[in-house]
Structures are given as C-alpha cells and as structure tokens.
Design a binder for these strands. Sequence first.
DNA 1: GTCTATAAAGTGATAGAC
DNA 2: GTCTATCACTTTATAGAC
Lengths: 210, 210
Amino acid sequence: MARLSATDRRSALVRAALTVIARDGVHAATTRAIVAEADMSLASFHYAFRSRDELIREVITFVVDQQEDASRAAIVPLGDVRATVRAAMQAYFELLKEHPEREQAMFELMHYSMRTAELGALPAVQHGSYRTAATALLEAAEPLLGISWGRPVDELSRVLVALTDGLTYAWLADRDDAAAERLMDYIADTFAGFAEPAHVHHAPSGGGAQ
Amino acid sequence: MARLSATDRRSALVRAALTVIARDGVHAATTRAIVAEADMSLASFHYAFRSRDELIREVITFVVDQQEDASRAAIVPLGDVRATVRAAMQAYFELLKEHPEREQAMFELMHYSMRTAELGALPAVQHGSYRTAATALLEAAEPLLGISWGRPVDELSRVLVALTDGLTYAWLADRDDAAAERLMDYIADTFAGFAEPAHVHHAPSGGGAQ
DNA sequence: GTCTATAAAGTGATAGAC
DNA sequence: GTCTATCACTTTATAGAC
C-alpha cells in the first residue's frame, strides 16, 4: 500500500467503515471487514487508530457533521408554503429511496451510541443538529415566502423532525412509496396551515386571514 | 437445572434474551450471556434451539406479538378529543420513560431484522400491527366521543404512528421531557382539529354530542 | 435431558521483520 | 510506515459422559 499520512489513512478508514456499515450493518463492521474494504492490512488499522472503538467514534462524529452540512442547503422557495414544504420533503425522500442503507446506518449508529457510555451524548448532538437544520429552514422560509409561522418555530421544528423520522422509519419498514407520498402530502398541508400572512410587528393594522 | 420441556426452555430463553437485549443491546446478546441470564448451561441452549439466529427470530416474533396485544386495550375516552388523545399519548410516554430500554430494544431488533434476509419482512409486520392498533384506536374513538374524523382514518393512523415513532426517537436521543410534552400537546391539538361533529348517514336527526 | 469439555472459526490487538 | 505472523480471547456449536 502506498504511504499515506496518518490523517489520510484515518479518513479512508472512516469512509470504508461507513460503506461496510451501510452495506452489512454495524455488527458486521469488524476491523477485518473494514480494512478489506479500504484495501489495507490489518496492522495499518491499528497504526491509524488506537482501537476499533476509536474508529467507530470518529465514524459517528463524521456522519453527524456530514448530515449537518447536507441539510444546510435545502431551501428552494416555490410559489406557496405547501409547494415549498412538499418539494423539500420529496427531495429528502428521493435521497432516502436512493440510499436507504445510509439512513439505516444512521439509525444503527445512533442506537449503538446509546449503548456505549462515552458515546451516549452523540444521539442528542445528532438530533440537535437535525433540529437546528429544521429551524433554519423554517426561519428562512418566512421572508422568502412572505409568511410568518403561527406557532413558535422551535415547536414546529420538533414536529417537522418527528414527522420526518417517523416517515423514514415507516418507509424503511414497509417500503410503501404511496403511503410515504400521502404522509408527505399531509405534512405539506399541515405546515401550509401553520403559515399566516406576514404582519408587521409595530403597526396594529389588523390580523390577516389567509 | 430442573428438567424442562423443550417449549418451556425455549420461552425461558426468549425472555432471558429480551432482558439481555434491553439491558445491554442486541450485540451483547451472545448465547453465553443469554444462558447466564436464564441460569442454564450453554448446551441447554443448543438443545432447545438449533442456532442463535433461530432464537433471535423467535425473540422478534414474540416482541411483535406482545406489542400487538399491548396496544389493543388502550382507549380511555375522556370528555373531548383533545383530552382523550393527550391522555393516550401521556400513557404511552409514561411507559417509555419507565422502560426506555424496551423501546430501544424494539428499534434495535427491527434494524437487526432489516439486515438479515429471512427476517426482512418482520419490520413491516411490526409496523403494520402498530398501525392497525392506531386505526382501531381512532375508529373506536368516533362513537365514544361522538365525532367523525375529517380525513380517512387510514391516513390519520399513519400520521399518529409517525409522530409517535418520531417522539420516541427524539426522547431516546435527548431525554428532553418538556419537549416531549410540548410535542404531545401539539399532537392532541392536531387530532382535535381533525375531529368533526358526527353526522348520521341515513337519518338526518342531528349530530349527537356526548 | 443435562452436563463438562472441546472443537472450529472469528475477533481485536501486537511483535517484529523489512 | 507497512507488512506477515501470531497471541489471547470470545464466539457458536457439538461430542460424549452421566
């Protein structure tokens, strides 16, 4: 194998581990399976990482960071709230359908984290970053669509994330595309219902019915 | 060890496995850990089960059946829709808080099933039984509360299940009780919003309030 | 039926040659 | 730095005494 810097080797192993986990599950991500995927020798693994646990820890933080980046650039404002939310959900759903193993791997890694003391805090971080993304998305939508949410954005982001997680789990379980589409229709409708025409704060010009 | 029938031994091992999985996770449920929990010898395990996989399969079907039974008797109609839904959610949430490991074990077992070819269908069964229970709950609520749901019950049960799964995952991740309570408030509000005064189909004698 | 003992394969991690 | 060879241990599963 070519000489790689320790950092290159580490990131190569992290990506290989992620591939193995997505393909075969967390329980199959043995050091041997990972180095085989990365086309390295077993000794190289322990040259780059002190232990398997150290790698898994890095895989999880990598995945969390990656997700945070991904969900940042997600807003494409369309004509109205319903269409915008529906399109955003559809975009996520297409990603899910294209790489179901990724979301599955995400879930598995989080459950794995919950079981190990030192990684126990990571699911909260992952979920928090997910919610931050949802909050940013909802707040960005206000000026772009000229609306204002009827409820606290913080609460709405919890609803959005819960529905998305629920949608993901349901689809992973039953692979029912039509059902997922109907659920996304519902989600779009609900959020359209939350939206109110933007009102200026200081001038009491009367409440706007949509 | 006392002489047990093969069936008794099997169910004892299934329950022991469930205990181990809830306490330490699926990956820790080795044959040795399970027989230790059941206070049996390792050989007894393979007398009762052909393989570890056969046990896990039985654990999963057992858990799915058990959940189906549990979610049957769940309706306690209160004055209005909001209060009824809120109370049902609260009851579930109390169970979750009391035994988080159980729900976690459920998730882990489902993800494990998704990874093994022969168990791949079980998550759909589990999710289906979950949705059946939600549907039954919603349908039972109609006559009891004197309402009728504005949307197809099938669609609403999907929403309810998705929100419950999302709530569960969120709480397992961040253990934020207050946030969960707010989410349950939202869920109760939404379903109260879905309810319409019941209209009798054939005889136009006016809707019956409870 | 239930046990002890052990086989056979897999695991994480390391030593030591190059 | 990177490899091969190997250690120490755990895993599932079975053989064979009782």
